[in-house]
Design a protein around this nucleic acid. Structure first.
Lengths: 125, 125
DNA sequence: CTTGACCTTCACACTGATGTCAGACTCCGA
DNA sequence: TCGGAGTCTGACATCAGTGTGAAGGTCAAG
């Protein structure tokens, strides 16, 4: 699919899709006319990238971990290609992600408890 | 305490402490000489702010929820002061935080699974 | 062939978070 | 009283992510 369709299907402006490519997060094929050509899986990839960006990861961090985040049946870099340095880097990212989760969870619970205390009757909207 | 000590005790540059004040996240007193004077609790406040910023929240979002995140014994705005609009806003922030948690958790699990597969001998941390 | 929708690259601009520097003031100790 | 450390404000710089527009190429429908 071309960039416009991918944009429509993900809600992400074409500008950003090009930017993600520049940042090496997406790697569309190119047609003979120079147009980008995305695989079907790019839709999920873009959603993945957006979620991570929204969660405070930088494109650099995402670039580092993206190859290892594929779904269950996907191709990952095989173990032989993962140097101890890379593994250490991933481990480090993992810790950072975990600390973000901890912080957000802690504050979600606090906020949630406060809301519950303030509107004990509220059953949502 | 003055800004330098707060900076040393939190590891956050004075520049940022002033920025957080500008963003209305901190409200130090002012001495007769114009110097900022922080309460002891500011240390915890700054750590809280840093954690939330690192987790991808903007100062705007933090400003919105910060008054409601105090520890168990702390003073919160009482229920009478919380309009339905405010409550709805907080509920909205809560959802956003939850979706970040979900995204990060998903990716933590994937990354973690990958690492476990690649280095089966490693016992995690 | 023309038009319009889509695509290309390039470039400038903005925002939010942060770094850095300059010039001036306060305070404290030698 | 002087000097240095700390503080003040204000301004400019940087970086990532994003918005926007110009100038032009591709292509299908009329």
């Amino acid at each position: 699919m071309r960039i416009g369709e991918l944009s429509r299907r993900t809600g992400v402006p074409t500008r950003l899709l090009r930017y993600y490519e520049e940042q090496d997060l997406l790697r569309p094929e190119r047609g003979a006319n120079g147009y980008r050509s995305y695989a079907e899986s790019a839709v999920a990839d873009v959603r993945q990238i957006r979620g991570l960006l929204d969660s405070g990861l930088t494109t650099e961090m995402i670039r580092a971990i993206l190859p290892y985040l594929g779904g269950p049946g996907e191709l990952h870099p095989p173990a032989e290609c993962v140097t101890p340095q890379t593994a250490a880097l991933l481990q480090d990212h993992l810790l950072r992600i975990q600390s973000r989760i901890d912080c957000l969870t802690r504050n979600r619970d606090r906020l949630s408890a406060y809301l519950a205390a303030v509107r004990p009757q509220s059953g949502g909207r």
